[in-house]
Each structure stands twice: as C-alpha cells, then as structure tokens.
Simulated scan of single mutants.
Amino acid sequence: MSMRRYLLHIGYCGSMLRGVQKQREEHEALFVSVGGLVEKGLKRLRPESIEQLYFSSRTDTGVHAVCNTAHVDLSCQGEGLCYEPSTVTNTLNRFFKKINAEIRVHKTTLVPSTFHARYDAVSRKYLYRLAVTPEPASSARAVLEQFMPVAEIGKLYLVRPPFDAERLESVCRLLEGVHDFASFANVQSKGSIPRETLREIKSITVTPGQPLLDPTLDPLYSKLQFWDVTVHGKSFLYRQVRRTVGVLVGVAQRCLNLEDVQHLLDHPSQRNWNSKATVAPPDGLFLLDVEYPPHVFAEEGDDSGQSPQE
C-alpha cells in the first residue's frame, strides 16, 4: 500500500454551506460543510483510506473563499503514484457539479508527507466587501429591502451613513504590527479564547470597491458606495477579521474614535470589547489567498490539474 499527500486549492461560496469544518451531526446522507463535501467527493476515487482533511483556514458559515487550501493523505494498493493530481481535481469538480455545490478545486498539488496546510502557511489575505447606503433606513431589514442588489445578496455588508473613510487611515496604521488582539477574539463553541492572542497584522487597507455586476444592470447599484477592506497577516484569531471590520465601520460612522481602538489594544481582554462596535456579518468576507514558502514544495512536483470543461 502506498500513501501520498495532496494539497487542494479550493474556492467556494459560503452562503449555503455550514463553514469549512465537518459538523458532528453530518452523516452520509447530509453533507453541508466544505470539509464534509470534499471528503464525500474524495471517496469517488475509491482510495484504501482517506486521512482527515486539514484546512489552512477554518472559515465560518457564510464566509467565502477565492482560494482556501487543505491537505489530505490518500492511500491505495500498490506502489508509486496512485492518483494523478489532475485526476483528484477533476473527480472532485465533477462531483461538486453533479450535486450543485458551490465549490471548485482550482488545482491539486503533490506535497511532501511533512507538509501541513495550516502550520506551513506564512500568510493569509482576506477581503471584506461593504457598501454605504445613501441614507439611513428605519431598520436592518429595511436596508436590505431598499438597497441590496440581487447579485450581492450574501456577498456584501450594507452599512448606513455617515461613513467618513478618511478617519480610517490612522486606525489601520494603529492596528498594523504585533499586538495582543484578545479584545478582538470571539468566544468559540468550547467557551474559551486561545491562550496565545498575540498576532501580527502585516497590512490593512480600505480602498474604494467595485460591484459584482455592471452597475447599469441594476438601478440599486447607483445608490451604493462600495469599499474594500483588505487584511493581510500570518494568522488570525476566531472572528478577528470580522471584529476588525466592525471597529473600522464604527470609527467611520463616528461611533468610535482612535482612543477607543487604542484602549482595545492597551487592555487586551475579551471582556473589553466595545459595545458601540458591531461584529461585521460573514456575508462580505472572502479568504483571498494562503501563501506558503517555496521550500515546502521542494521534494515534490506540481500539477495544476485542469478542471473539466463546463
């Protein structure tokens, strides 16, 4: 029996998926997470065994990925290479297309047995898409009904004015670098935050954004001002990016100021979260890329594994 390790580069729309992590209640007839669906697709290869999938980033329900990564060990009878990387890619994509799952494998790469998708990653880049409405609405539901273009449903966070983007430059610079981000850490299901809450944010930028469709195709686009928040770092605490966006929105709306953000950093504690800041919803969050150092692939070849024609 031979076993090889594969690295999957996976994109997905998270609106109808229950995050990356396979749910305990999932069973053979119901796979609703990215991990559960990938495992079921891999079984179509009929391997002798499938070791547990290890994702680089455990995105939540509703969060999207342009490119997330995961490694998996596949074993089969005989020696040598049992599955070409392109076979893995094509088999999975045929399966996702058949079941109408909004998941695609961009490519599959052979990696050494010592490679780990999570721990070997040197950086992750996230994009958060938001748009400002032209006028306040009476409620959050009214915001969606009055201003949300249909193509943006589940992929955009609508915020109400005022929104002063010029106030965000100093906040972004303050959050960059190494800090104890315990104040930005959300309690996980097990009821605790990580013991180690020091993280480094390499960069945060807030720039004018773009709609997903030509704005002339939907009159609602003319009523929105789009902004992109890009956050780059090695790793992040649970919901840290969404809380960071929530703080930025709070500052732009003049609910928070620079001193409030400094207080979150100077007094790192989950109990120190500012009640004036709203945690941004998952809808606008996209994992853009996971970066690895070249040397971790040195022992194996690379096969892009083209997807079948659709």
Rank of each mutant, 00 (worst) to 15 (best):
M1T: 07
L7H: 06
H9W: 04
G11S: 06
S15L: 13
M16T: 15
M16C: 10
R18Y: 11
V20T: 08
K22M: 11
E25A: 02
E26S: 11
E26N: 13
H27E: 02
V34F: 00
G35P: 00
L37K: 14
F55E: 01
S57V: 06
S57D: 02
S57A: 10
G62M: 07
H64E: 13
H64L: 13
V66P: 00
N68I: 02
L74R: 01
S75C: 11
Q77I: 13
G78K: 14
G80D: 03
Y83E: 15
S86V: 03
V88D: 04
F96Y: 08
I99L: 03
E102F: 13
L110G: 02
L110K: 01
V111W: 05
P112S: 13
P112N: 00
T114V: 01
H116W: 02
A117R: 03
A121S: 14
R124Q: 08
K125H: 05
Y128W: 02
R129K: 12
R129E: 01
A131D: 02
P134T: 04
V143Q: 15
F147T: 07
P149F: 10
P149Q: 11
P149Y: 09
I153L: 13
Y157V: 02
P161E: 09
D164R: 15
E166I: 11
L168T: 07
C172E: 01
G177P: 04
V178K: 15
V178R: 15
F181Q: 03
F184A: 04
A185I: 07
V187S: 06
V187K: 10
Q188V: 12
E196L: 03
T197N: 04
I201L: 15
I201H: 00
V206N: 01
G209T: 08
Q210I: 08
P211G: 11
D214Q: 09
D218F: 06
L220C: 09
Y221P: 04
Y221N: 10
H232Y: 10
G233M: 02
F236S: 01
R242S: 12
G246Y: 03
V247G: 04
G250T: 03
C255V: 00
L256W: 00
E259C: 05
H263G: 05
D266A: 14
Q270F: 00
R271G: 06
N272W: 03
W273P: 01
S275H: 07
A277Q: 04
P281V: 01
P282S: 08
D283L: 09
L287W: 08
L287Q: 05
V290Y: 08
V290P: 07
P294T: 05
V296E: 09
F297W: 04
F297V: 01
A298S: 11
E300H: 02
G301V: 07
G301W: 12
D302T: 14
D302I: 12
S304W: 13
Q306L: 11
